[in-house]
Computed example of a mutant assay.
Amino acid sequence: MQSEKTPLHGPINEKTQPYLFAIKHLIDARAGEILHKSNFGGGWEKWLQLEVAAELDMPHTIDVLCEQSIWPGSSDRVDLWLQDPQANYQNLNPADIAEEQCLFQLRRRQGFIQKHDNEQLKNLGQIHKLGQQVGIELKCRTYLQKPADLQAKFLEDVVKIHNKPLVSCKLVALAVTVDELDVHRELSKKFGNVEVYWDRVSDHVPIWLLYVEVPWKV
């Protein structure tokens, strides 16, 4: 098997990948802003990170935080931390929004991020009951960025999520690009046997997503 791979076309599935589907839908809705901001020399990654967090946090049934430390014994942080594994990512009516706001405040006060100690890690049954949150590392293609640089930055995130400690979450490396060639170029050999997938935001929006998912396995 060759270790150098071209990303596979993997349309994001609303039922099995609701967190990515919600982000894809948001990018589609904000495409005009994204295409405008991507024309500047600086990065727009932090802007999109905050837009995703704010949009999914309310009025959707999910609690989203940015720059959270979920790696025991490490100062590394994950860009987006989606805390409700049962979220349906659908818009709510006003009554439901009011109820969700109460739940949102309760979750945040109690601290929903799981930082397991050694005793918890020994109790696999207890870990299974905690559910599976989602952590997302985000990269965005800047105007003057070379393809090799985007691949290198994305690779850093892929390596990071594959070297994760035993925490109850699914981890995703996600790259957003306005250059279609990024999804057809062969990726660095350093990716090894990792499967990298791509999807277009929509037929009428020239924005593409590269992604790698690492499910939680005990």
Rank of each mutant, 00 (worst) to 15 (best):
V172M: 01
A87G: 12
A22S: 15
H25M: 15
Q86S: 14
V194D: 02
G135W: 01
A95L: 15
K46F: 02
Q17P: 02
S202I: 03
D203H: 09
E33N: 11
V52D: 02
L48P: 00
A175N: 01
G43N: 13
H128F: 09
R30N: 04
L166W: 13
P165V: 12
E100V: 05
K15W: 12
Q120M: 12
K129F: 08
N123L: 08
K189C: 12
V178K: 04
L171K: 04
L174M: 00
P206M: 04
V172K: 01
R141W: 06
P85D: 05
V78M: 15
D76L: 14
I62F: 10
A54F: 07
F112W: 09
V212H: 02
W216G: 06
G131M: 00
L20R: 02
A29V: 13
R77F: 13
E100K: 08
R30E: 05
L65I: 07
Q114K: 12
I23S: 04
H116T: 09
L150N: 01
G131W: 00
Q132I: 11
Q105D: 06
S75F: 10
Y89E: 09
K46Q: 03
K217E: 11
Q120S: 10
L20I: 06
D199T: 05
V218I: 10
A148P: 03
A95P: 06
K115N: 10
Y211V: 04
L48C: 03
I97K: 04
L155W: 03
N163P: 07
T16D: 09
S38G: 08
V178L: 03
C169W: 09
Q90I: 09
P72C: 12
A152Y: 05
H25T: 15
Q151V: 00
L181K: 08
N88W: 06
I207D: 00
E180A: 04
F40T: 13
A29K: 15
F104N: 06
K129S: 11
A22M: 15
Q86V: 11
A95N: 13
L82W: 03
P206S: 06
K129A: 10
L103W: 06
P147D: 04
V167P: 02
A148F: 05
H184Y: 06
A173R: 01
P11K: 02
I207H: 01
S74Y: 12
V167K: 00
L8G: 07
Q90R: 11
W208L: 02
Q49A: 09
S168M: 12
T6M: 15
K146L: 11
V178N: 05
V196F: 03
L56P: 11
T61S: 14
F21L: 02
S3A: 11
G135Y: 02
R30Q: 07
L130P: 00
V172Q: 00
L65F: 09
L171G: 03
E99A: 15
P94K: 13
S74T: 14
I207F: 01
A152H: 07
N193T: 14
R141C: 06
H36L: 11
F112E: 07
H9N: 04
V218G: 07
N118Y: 13
Q68K: 13
P165M: 13
A148T: 09
E55N: 14
T142Q: 12
N93I: 10
E67A: 08
E100F: 13
E51R: 07
Y19F: 11
Y19M: 13
L121W: 05
Q145D: 05
C169R: 10
M1Y: 07
E180H: 04
R185D: 00
Y19Q: 15
A152V: 00
A87R: 07
Q110L: 09
V205S: 01
R30F: 02
K115S: 10
V194T: 15
